[in-house]
Design a protein around this nucleic acid. Structure first.
Lengths: 190, 190
DNA sequence: TATAACGGACTGAACGTTCACTCCGCAGCG
DNA sequence: CGCTGCGGAGTGAACGTTCAGTCCGTTATA
């Protein structure tokens, strides 16, 4: 039962993601990452130039996971409202199903890493969502507010609640998710 | 022109708050705090047992500032809607006027400090807001959702936008604030 | 008033710890 | 034997914290 070349790389990324999600970037030494991944410290540096590159790799992987949910859920043949409810429900369910990825991303975007990253690629990464909101605006359904404001009205409450849920302050079940997404829909529509 | 005893304490807290707001807890060494405050490193430890106690003191001060805005703005003789719009507009304006306090608190509540703190005193600190929402629910104006959900619907978008504003991604002017608060009002009402 | 002794606020070099990262020896395989 | 992938003790830097000593305002003494 041999490990493939990429298995150690994957194990390192998984271990780092879990630990960073729990303890933050500065709370998780490389030694601990190596320990959970079942590899030596030096092995980390065979696959990643430094800790920053490891973190970027994890971010990139998590980002793809989240982006895929959008493209999987979005259906151009449905009305805007149905798409909205489906997309944000699906995203919330994904946040809850993948707590490590979610908490990692929270850590990431609340750090110098994330701010620089966002500045660099915001244009790219949010393009599909931007187009979706624009479509709703052209149909006079969604308010004529700046894109960032619509993002805030949609994601703000969900991320707030997901964080509370993962910290054990709220039980975020399926009916509650539906109620929240319906409420944010009321916030972004005329 | 001598410094009072408490002036150095205040200078240390101010310097630490500014630096932590910019660089995070682990990005700001005590040496840097002392440098900006214009005191020796050791002086910090005359006023605070350790770095944690310094952070708690800053949090406590900022918390009082924010709590005061609620009590100053809330007027029991106004309709719920007017109170809601006034309170959350005022809070947002305060967030923008006090970027250091705001960013410090963001850092704080995204760290082990904040989670433990919230667990300990959530009951206490949110009491006035809880009562406010309850009043609106009894008048059949505000949705019968859990308190945490109402908090998320109200604060989520605002904090999201304030963060974007402080990072330079959005210009959050007075009309935009009004539009956002009106939108979150639409989200929390029946 | 002039001078000496005191007390404690203040300082920063030094300490021990912890971290990210390196380096060299080892094991498996052809 | 050479080569490749790997491990973990070791390294230097940086951190939070300490503490022996300095400085200065106040008080006691003559």
């Amino acid at each position: 039962m041999e490990m493939q070349q990429t298995d150690k790389r994957t194990a390192i990324m998984q271990a780092a993601m879990e630990l960073i999600a729990e303890q933050g970037f500065h709370g998780t030494p490389t030694s601990q990452i190596a320990g959970r991944a079942g590899v030596g410290v030096g092995t980390i540096y065979r696959y990643f130039k430094d800790k920053d590159e490891l973190i970027e790799a994890i971010h990139s992987q998590a980002h793809e996971l989240f982006a895929a949910t959008f493209t999987d859920t979005y259906d151009p043949h449905r009305p805007v409202r149905e798409n909205y409810l489906a997309i944000f429900s699906a995203l919330t369910r994904l946040f809850l199903a993948r707590p490590c990825e979610t908490r990692f991303m929270e850590q990431y975007y609340n750090s110098p890493y994330g701010i620089a990253k966002k500045r660099a690629e915001e244009v790219e990464c949010d393009k599909p969502l931007f187009a979706f909101f624009e479509q709703g605006q052209q149909q006079q359904v969604i308010k004529a507010l700046p894109f960032e404001v619509l993002m805030a009205l949609s994601f703000g409450p969900l991320l707030f609640l997901v964080r509370d849920h993962l910290n054990g302050f709220v039980e975020l079940d399926e009916p509650t998710i539906a109620a929240v997404v319906a409420s944010t829909w009321a916030a972004v529509t005329r």
